[in-house]
Design a protein around this nucleic acid. Sequence first.
DNA 1: AACGATGGTGACAGCGCTGTCATCCTGCGA
DNA 2: TCGCAGGATGACAGCGCTGTCACCATCGTT
Lengths: 353, 353
Amino acid sequence: MTRSTPLTASPQAPRRRRLRADAVAGPTLAEVAARAGVSEITVSRVMRGAGNVSKATAARVMEAVRETGYVRNRLAGSLAGHRSNQIGVLLPSLGNIVFPDVLNGIEDGLEAAGFHPVLGITHYRPEREEHLLASLLAWRPAGLIVTGTRHTAPARAMLGAAGVPVVEVMDVDTAPVDMAVGISHRAAGAAMAQHLLARGYRRFGYVGHDLTADERAAQRRDGFRAALAEAGMDAPVECLSGTPSSVGAGREALARLLEGAAPQAVFFSNDDMATGGVFHCLAAGIDLPSGLAIAGFNGLEIGQQLPRPLTTIGSRRRDIGRTAAGMILARLAGEAPAPVADVGFTLIPGATA
Amino acid sequence: MTRSTPLTASPQAPRRRRLRADAVAGPTLAEVAARAGVSEITVSRVMRGAGNVSKATAARVMEAVRETGYVRNRLAGSLAGHRSNQIGVLLPSLGNIVFPDVLNGIEDGLEAAGFHPVLGITHYRPEREEHLLASLLAWRPAGLIVTGTRHTAPARAMLGAAGVPVVEVMDVDTAPVDMAVGISHRAAGAAMAQHLLARGYRRFGYVGHDLTADERAAQRRDGFRAALAEAGMDAPVECLSGTPSSVGAGREALARLLEGAAPQAVFFSNDDMATGGVFHCLAAGIDLPSGLAIAGFNGLEIGQQLPRPLTTIGSRRRDIGRTAAGMILARLAGEAPAPVADVGFTLIPGATA
DNA sequence: AACGATGGTGACAGCGCTGTCATCCTGCGA
DNA sequence: TCGCAGGATGACAGCGCTGTCACCATCGTT
């Protein structure tokens, strides 16, 4: 460990063999063991809660730990024991609340078992995911949580060869490398199409953000279009903003869409975009849903607090995170959870469509 | 490292000395070195980019790395080299976009230098922070980023004794354990009071969420109240919701506040709450700002996309995160950055006050 | 011609811990 | 009384890597 300011300067470097040179590196098992009058391995067992230590000995050890201020070194422990409590987590973005929600669920699930997430943000770039993956793997994590099923070939190879549980989160439309948890985004898109059709709408629009990066949004759109086609509808008029999703982007994109078309109902790539759409209608004096119906995706709180609650689909992001953590932990415990967990989505009727 | 499914079963456990028993643990430096016809230390140098290796040798080594599929083991490296590339990060919540923004900045700053954040969420509970800190410290992180300046005594002791750079983020009102980056929340609250006073408002209200947990929101409120008092104003009428901040909580709290009082301008604990306030006004037919002025804090995108852009204070959260990462890295590079970095805030006039 | 400076390479000894087996003790059934 | 199961404890040998010297070959300098 690099130290910014050595607390103690070694007065004169002894020739060779400078056991605990830094003097600041803190006590080791050996010191605690000496103090407690037991062997190192016994202290190790106490620290790990590994059995076969008498109550009395354990108490003496804990006392010595307290006196010395011993801090367990998991670097050494993991190296020797071939087991870590770190889980590599790769998410595409923290730009809206969706992935933080997932991460929150992951942290929650892991923390309860004493595991830590080690985080990387890919910015929706597969090469960056590959790079981060290689870097995380050097830490020999006990498991990996990555986003989606689109990976570079080397990344896929690394995931396969890592020899640890891997969960791909968000999306269960494609066969996973190892395990997956999420929902079918195609089905979600289709479900919204069916809902809007059932409400009587017949002329549709779609407003999206940069779909080349966000493949799940693309799948929702595909599902939406396919379901409309199947019902014999015309293809929706579309406006894609090409930027990351945001309220502003949704607002502008809807405005542009309405310049050239007059759909009855517009499906947005997500709730941020849809909220922007609602704001445009508010500003333009378009009544919801009589003047225009709007639907989103995610079931964010903001959407439900709008003047009229947003018609949307709840995506249970926290559950996805927590389930992902649970699947990893189950595998580490020797269980064999079902490889694919579909947490399901909920259509929230709202009042904008 | 625990493996879910051993790829190869060891046919018969050799007596003692089972070098590379798992057979799945992947190649080591020794194997790469043998293949490249150099010593282990040379391979190590190539992998680390530590100098003094000829181009030709390095190329041979890289070739051997590729052939063997060698993955560097940082567990062993960190143990032997006393240096890690992991930074412990403790945040209170990922429930709204504020801390994800900070985390995003942190990840950004760290990733560029090849460092990884190891995350813990405290849920605004100091004991949980203490617990997580102890757990993270076992990994001998190269640095620590924690939130705010309120810690339990043991936590404070651990931070002091960790012997690594520590940055406390968000808040620069209190003297840091080591370094701090953020803004003065007192000053921000006062700045908003002055802004509202300058706009001619004289009767004030305050709407907040659970301030016992969120001490920075409490500081903004204090600064707001102090500045009003100094200007000879009556203390603001207040409504505190006691729940975590949310749009819905802001909406309800404002409604309750207006039942018993008629302030001209209301300062909200943050933009989520203020957005709720705006929605209440929208629903109740209260014109902004003539019927009521509303001000928030954070400068979230949603606030700026409301029918009337929200009067608020930009809090530069990403910058805070990036600066925190930069301060840690600077210290690790042997520099001595200023211990306190005030990134400053910006009053965004908006149109709701 | 002798010199130190520099660049390239390697031997060695751990870093601090845990897996594995061996050992010792105690109590209990035959 | 003896043997033995099972709990408690310890010795030993690494886990895979890097810090620290040591060494050798150039190479330019005086």
